[in-house]
């Protein structure tokens, strides 16, 4: 809070001056303001790096956002997934759904664990977070199709994409597939099922990925339209 007040009185006024003089940008903070490091392990890692620490001590830092927390339950990928689930800005609901989903995953996995004979139990992963990571990784596509028109004809051209886009598609497919459900079913139940399936490299999402890859393979003849 103190820092917040300090920020309002000292930095914000000078920021407004800067805004008038220099170019237009969309954030309140000029580009030389760096993002805060709010996780404890990252902070400790920063202390190891001498040059980075020096840089950090000389550049102004943006205030931490409301969803930034150093809680040990915080995870960057899960935070992103929550935001993808969220509809109409209802983050409370999105978080509730995800918590229930992880609970369901845990229950299902524990069921599986106790139903298998003790000698095979070692291979079963119980941690929902690990299963979630596995699922996202398995669903990540390599190529996607893009419409490119050449000579008046639109071709479906297979193109590679960057990591962010691939990760987004992977997570979005999981959510979209889970939303494709009957009225009686709950989203958290279906989502749990999809994630467990995807972690095993099975299920509807994985099929979707394979379909896309198959189509890309079929359209490989058009691949050169990407640059020609």
């Amino acid at each position: 809070m103190f820092i917040g007040r300090k920020f309002n009185s000292l930095i914000l006024s000078s920021l407004r001056c800067n805004l008038e003089n220099s170019f237009q940008f969309y954030s309140v903070f000029p580009p030389n303001y760096i993002k805060p490091i709010y996780k404890k392990d990252e902070q400790e890692a920063l202390y190891q790096e001498e040059t980075e620490l020096k840089q950090f001590s000389h550049s102004p830092v943006q205030p931490a956002k409301t969803n930034n927390t150093c809680s040990e339950f915080h995870d960057e990928l899960i935070r992103k997934f929550t935001n993808y689930i969220m509809r109409k800005g209802d983050k409370k609901m999105a978080r509730k759904i995800l918590d229930e989903t992880f609970e369901n995953i845990k229950i299902k996995k524990l069921n599986e664990y106790y139903n298998t004979p003790p000698e095979y139990r070692e291979n079963i992963i119980l941690d929902p977070k690990v299963i979630f990571y596995q699922a996202v990784e398995n669903c990540t596509p390599v190529l996607e199709l893009q419409k490119i028109s050449r000579g008046g004809i639109a071709y479906q051209v297979p193109i590679p994409m960057n990591e962010n886009r691939a990760q987004f598609l992977s997570m979005n497919w999981i959510i979209r597939t889970a939303q494709n459900k009957g009225n009686a079913e709950k989203l958290s139940d279906v989502l749990a099922k999809e994630i467990i399936d995807a972690a095993k490299n099975q299920g509807r999402v994985i099929k979707k990925k394979y379909d896309l890859h198959k189509q890309c393979e079929a359209n490989r003849a058009y691949a050169h339209y990407r640059w020609l």
Binding site: K40, A64, T66, T69, C70, S71, H74, K91, K92
Partner: peptide, 16 residues
């Protein structure tokens, strides 16, 4: 606080 994010926020100042 019903919201978990708010609870996390109220702990943030202390958790360093």
């Amino acid at each position: 606080f019903n919201d978990i994010q708010c609870r996390e926020q109220s702990l943030r100042s202390q958790s360093r």
